[in-house]
């Protein structure tokens, strides 16, 4: 039983890693960022490329992927999203376009493949990341044998979630983000530089997606389409947890991951996934605003 719960926990932490960034860009900023999955993918490719070209291992790739995807996110906000605040469906379409651009950029090796040049680690093919010795095999926690890499993912997720909580609820930056989320005009009238804070918030959410990508690359094959199903998972978690609620996102990731793990252990993965969808539909039917959501005006 402890093993099943541990597997559920590790599934939860992967869901949470992907959803954490969305909880910020979708939850706090009201942008449906369809490129979020591609930012996860970009983070995975940073791991692949830094392994090949810089001989960095997966742990060193975490800060690098954070910076790279945060920068991509910053550019997306500056060039596209900033013109679309308050136009939810337009953000969906525009960021979907951005998602396709990012995918193609990886697939076509930034266009170099047209000229017969190739970059090791990019292109249409599948890529693999080797996990360092220390993170392979099993370790024993509390008398239970657990996969070391899964334990590592849980650890990283806990740290990032705590860092996000500190940033959003205990820092002056977080007060500005939450004020903008509730009343952007009044926030501006109070001296908050709404455009700058929005750009940085979006960059932070994107950086989290990049870190999720690094974690994914440790146990999944890396390829240009890998992000597409993840953005679905991410939105499931955020919508079920309640838009704008960090606590809701955490609990919803925990719930869905456990359901997935438990159902998969007694039946199979496909039924488990169907069960997750069923639960999310049930939550949205019964509580259209999700499990937790801050009281609106």
């Amino acid at each position: 039983m402890a093993e099943i719960i541990f597997i559920g926990l590790s599934l939860s932490s992967i869901l949470l890693l992907v959803a954490l960034g969305l909880a910020i860009t979708y939850g706090a900023m009201g942008v449906i960022n369809m490129a979020h999955g591609e930012l996860v993918m970009a983070g995975a490719y940073v791991t692949v490329l830094s392994g090949i070209w810089l001989h960095l291992n997966i742990i060193a790739a975490i800060p690098l992927a954070f910076l790279v995807t945060a920068l991509i996110g910053y550019l997306i906000e500056r060039l596209v999203v900033r013109r679309l605040y308050g136009r939810l469906l337009d953000t969906l379409l525009a960021t979907w376009g951005v998602a396709i651009l990012i995918q193609q950029a990886v697939r076509l090796e930034f266009g170099l493949s047209f000229f017969g040049r190739h970059i090791a680690g990019l292109g249409v093919g599948l890529q693999n990341v080797t996990v360092p010795e220390a993170l392979t095999g099993a370790i024993t926690i509390g008398g239970v044998q657990v996969n070391a890499f899964r334990a590592f993912i849980i650890g990283v997720t806990v740290v990032l979630t705590f860092a996000t909580w500190l940033l959003m609820y205990r820092s002056s930056f977080g007060v500005q983000v939450r004020a903008i989320m509730r009343n952007p005009n009044m926030a501006a009238a109070c001296g908050i530089n709404v455009q700058r804070v929005n750009a940085l918030t979006f960059a932070y959410g994107s950086g989290l997606a990049g870190v999720a990508g690094v974690m994914m690359s440790g146990f999944k094959t890396v390829f240009p389409d890998m992000g597409t199903p993840m953005v679905v998972d991410g939105f499931l978690v955020v919508a079920a947890g309640g838009v704008g609620s960090l606590l809701g996102t955490i609990l919803s990731a925990g719930l869905l991951g456990q359901i997935n793990g438990i159902v998969a252990s007694v039946t199979n993965d496909i039924l488990a996934r169907a069960m997750v969808f069923a639960v999310v539909i049930l939550i949205i039917v019964l509580k259209p605003r999700g499990l937790f959501s801050y009281r609106g005006r």
């Binding site: 002056s172 007060v175 500005q176 939450r178 004020a179 509730r182 009343n183 005009n185 009044m186 926030a187 009238a189 109070c190 001296g191 908050i192 801050y294 009281r295 005006r297």
Partner: peptide, 25 residues
């Protein structure tokens, strides 16, 4: 500094957070 019609304070911010919002200026 602006005190709008309808006040536009933030209901789920504490009194302290609402007041300190102004201090960003």
């Amino acid at each position: 500094a602006y005190v709008p019609q309808g006040r536009e304070i933030i209901p789920d911010f504490s009194v302290r957070e609402n007041i300190l919002m102004g201090s960003f200026a």
